[in-house]
Computed example of a mutant assay.
Amino acid sequence: MGSTRLTYASTDTHDAPTTVVGTYLEPLQPWTGPGERPLVAYAGGTQGQGAECAPSAMLSQVIRYQPPADVVFEYDVIAIYQLLSRGMAVVMTDYHDLGTPGIHNFLNRKTQGYAVLDSARAALRLPGTGLGPESPVVLYGYSQGGMASAAAAELQPKYAPELNVRGAYVGGPPVSPQDFIARSDGRPGVAPAIAWILNGIAADYPDTRPALDAALNDTGKAIMRDSIGKCGGGLSSTFAQPQNTSQWTTSGQPLAVVIDGSPELKKALDEQRLGGSAPSVPVRIYSARNDDGPAPYPAVHGMASSWCSGGAAVQLDSDASVPAISAGFLGTHDVAFFPSLSTSQQWVTDRLADVPAPVNCAALP
């Protein structure tokens, strides 16, 4: 496997130019499928909110130790190596503000989608890879990466219509950061992720800062501040502060209530919701029925239904085989990554071979 670090042009949440970092990975295996070697635009899962958390920085590690006592499992590495073993080239974005100055806007619909699409554009222009403007592209991601892949699929028809996108795999996507905040309130280990969302909103939407400043007490402000620069899902021991967001606010109300009562915050978070526009390429959505974490099945089903109504070719895979496992930010959602692997990659291979895409919009599970 050869790797090339990329710095490429992209677009921020307000459609202004910006710069993103990513990594191109060239497989050692030949491509044995039809046509040109394909490129998978891979969107990584949640890593954190600091430069050292950049997804591509973790490519050399499957298990990473984060002092003082946390171990983070980098499951994306497994998926990426499986794609490479099939002879597919892979480009992995570091998203906005991971590897570049600024605060990573965690779960921002537009910037994640733009970063994925622009990573494909950048990789296709690299000399000496055998890739070209017409090379087939597949969007692929799970968890935060699933949201990014979904956003890229929604945005691609207008933002990057020249890309030869054959399909998008959307695994366990958080459909709405606002819903995630409401559902996660009080769960052990989830405080950092809530803080990452709010930090990103404050960075991208300056008009929300006065509302956040007035709503958060010293505890809430400390949690937001301390979350910056922290990596991975193994943060539960780092955050001994209150997990109930009612203890973060000056009013004693949960953050979900505070957001609903603030026009600025609600508008900014509503812009991050998936399902508003239908992809023009085939999509396979994977969701664990028992996912009680960041990607609950009813929300994913609602997104799929919305896309179907918009005319998208959607296959929704509802997996009831993964048991309910409650472990804060971990649990069923993370375990479900593994059964999705083999079937999702076969689906990708079939799209590249022009096999008709399966669709179950008429009877979503």
Rank of each mutant, 00 (worst) to 15 (best):
residue 346 Q to N: 14
residue 334 D to H: 08
residue 343 T to F: 03
residue 334 D to S: 06
residue 354 D to E: 11
residue 344 S to L: 10
residue 354 D to Q: 08
residue 350 D to P: 03
residue 345 Q to S: 04
residue 336 A to F: 01
residue 347 W to D: 03
residue 360 N to S: 08
residue 355 V to E: 05
residue 359 V to Q: 07
residue 347 W to P: 03
residue 347 W to I: 12
residue 341 L to W: 02
residue 344 S to I: 08
residue 348 V to N: 02
residue 337 F to H: 05
residue 337 F to A: 13
residue 359 V to H: 02
residue 353 A to L: 13
residue 338 F to R: 01
residue 360 N to V: 14
residue 337 F to C: 07
residue 352 L to R: 09
residue 354 D to T: 00
residue 361 C to H: 09
residue 341 L to A: 08
residue 357 A to E: 13
residue 338 F to D: 00
residue 357 A to W: 09
residue 334 D to Q: 09
residue 352 L to T: 14
residue 344 S to A: 13
residue 335 V to N: 00
residue 340 S to R: 00
residue 357 A to C: 06
residue 354 D to P: 10
residue 340 S to M: 07
residue 360 N to H: 12
residue 360 N to C: 09
residue 356 P to V: 15
residue 359 V to A: 07
residue 349 T to D: 03
residue 360 N to D: 11
residue 349 T to L: 13
residue 359 V to F: 06
residue 338 F to K: 00
residue 359 V to Y: 02
residue 345 Q to G: 01
residue 347 W to N: 04
residue 353 A to Q: 10
residue 361 C to E: 11
residue 334 D to L: 14
residue 340 S to K: 01
residue 337 F to S: 06
residue 337 F to M: 03
residue 355 V to C: 01
residue 342 S to G: 07
residue 355 V to Q: 08
residue 338 F to G: 00
residue 354 D to W: 04
residue 338 F to P: 02
residue 339 P to M: 01
residue 361 C to W: 00
residue 345 Q to N: 04
residue 359 V to S: 08
residue 359 V to N: 10
residue 362 A to T: 15
residue 334 D to W: 11
residue 336 A to S: 03
residue 350 D to F: 06
residue 340 S to V: 02
residue 340 S to P: 06
residue 344 S to P: 06
residue 354 D to R: 04
residue 343 T to Q: 03
residue 343 T to S: 09
residue 355 V to H: 02
residue 358 P to G: 08
residue 338 F to H: 00
residue 336 A to N: 04
